[in-house]
């Protein structure tokens, strides 16, 4: 009986359900269970078209949608010492790194890019949750500092998209030291009079929340993102009571005064343009006469040349939505 219910049935079920979902065509929304066509999901920036659940998006995909015509260039990040502690748990740290690099195709958990958003130069840094839970170690610290330095050099605002399980445990105390390190970089950016906008995405936790993710001039979160210092499981174990519905989610934090805004991913670009233009003393953005670039058209354009997506000459009564 037990063997049948616990082992045989799940095995059979998993065989069938695997067949039902060909991996490269459809994915299932983890929130409402709707089957979503992959291309549609990509076009929708990994947001479920049925329930608006925001799934993880890689920094690269996010930047493609964020920068004008999907064009951006990567900012070089100084290489830290690899495996500074010669850390070993059940696996060696370098082996875990290699596995993460192979599965994500990325070098590390943060991507720094510069380009134009609404024809305004902006430096962006995005944390990649799929790379070792986006965890913050020396590289992420270096990347964040490089982003600040580049922003200061270019006199450009900085937008950071945070997503992390916390500190990179395999770098021990050195990962903890990224809290003061990144804070120093933010101070330099602020002294240069440049805006720092922090967009908190699901999940942003631990030492990342307790440093650069809470020090933005403007704090925006994506809907339903988990944002916390200590995770809900740890808290439930400590206080031995059930936590209320929606605890530590973006809307909850907004209610408790910890955020400025909660913004849907599809509105993020326009909102960033609006806010950044006001903070940097630019006139309101005006939509161009050009037709909105289609996904495919934009991508080819991106490879050829940076195409101007917006025209800055003010046109009467046509504010960018």
């Amino acid at each position: 009986m037990n063997w049948i219910t616990n082992y045989v049935r799940p095995t059979i079920n998993s065989l069938f359900s695997r067949r039902e979902v060909p991996e490269n065509l459809w994915s299932k929304c983890p929130e409402c269970g709707t089957m979503l066509f992959h291309r549609e999901l990509t076009d929708n920036l990994q947001v479920c078209s049925n329930c608006n659940h925001h799934m993880a998006i890689t920094p690269r995909d996010r930047f493609k949608a964020l920068f004008d015509a999907g064009t951006f260039s990567e900012v070089a990040v100084p290489e830290p010492v690899a495996d500074p502690l010669q850390f070993r748990d059940q696996k060696k740290y370098p082996d875990r790194m290699k596995a993460a690099q192979k599965s994500t195709g990325e070098k590390e958990a943060m991507l720094v890019a510069e380009g134009e958003i609404g024809r305004m130069p902006v430096v962006c840094a995005g944390q990649d949750f799929s790379f070792m839970a986006g965890s913050m170690g020396m590289y992420v610290g270096n990347a964040f500092i490089a982003a600040c330095e580049r922003a200061i050099e270019r006199r450009a605002p900085l937008v950071v998209f945070s997503a992390a399980g916390g500190a990179r445990m395999q770098e021990g105390i050195l990962s903890l030291m990224q809290m003061p390190r990144t804070t120093v970089a933010i101070q330099m950016l602020k002294e240069a009079g440049l805006p720092y906008i922090c967009v908190l995405t699901h999940p942003t936790t631990g030492g990342v929340t307790a440093s650069y993710a809470m020090l933005g001039d403007i704090q925006i979160a994506e809907p339903n993102a988990l944002i916390c210092f200590a995770g809900p499981r740890v808290i439930e174990q400590t206080i031995r009571e059930k936590l209320p519905e929606g605890f530590q989610r973006a809307e909850y934090l907004l209610d408790h005064g910890m955020l400025d805004r909660v913004t849907h991913r599809k509105d993020m670009r326009d909102e960033l343009i609006t806010i950044l233009r006001m903070l940097t003393g630019l006139p309101p953005a005006v939509a161009a006469d050009l037709p909105a670039p289609e996904g495919a058209a934009a991508e080819t354009a991106a490879e050829v040349a940076p195409a101007p997506a917006l025209v800055e000459t003010p046109k009467a009564g046509e504010p960018q939505s």
């Binding site: 929340t209 307790a210 993710a213 809470m214 944002i227 916390c228 210092f229 200590a230 740890v234 808290i235 400590t238 206080i239 009571e241 936590l243 605890f247 530590q248 408790h256 005064g257 910890m258």
Partner: peptide, 12 residues
Amino acid sequence: PGKGAEERGQAE
């Protein structure tokens, strides 16, 4: 790691 501590912005 407590409920009130989180609500009042432990990370911040």
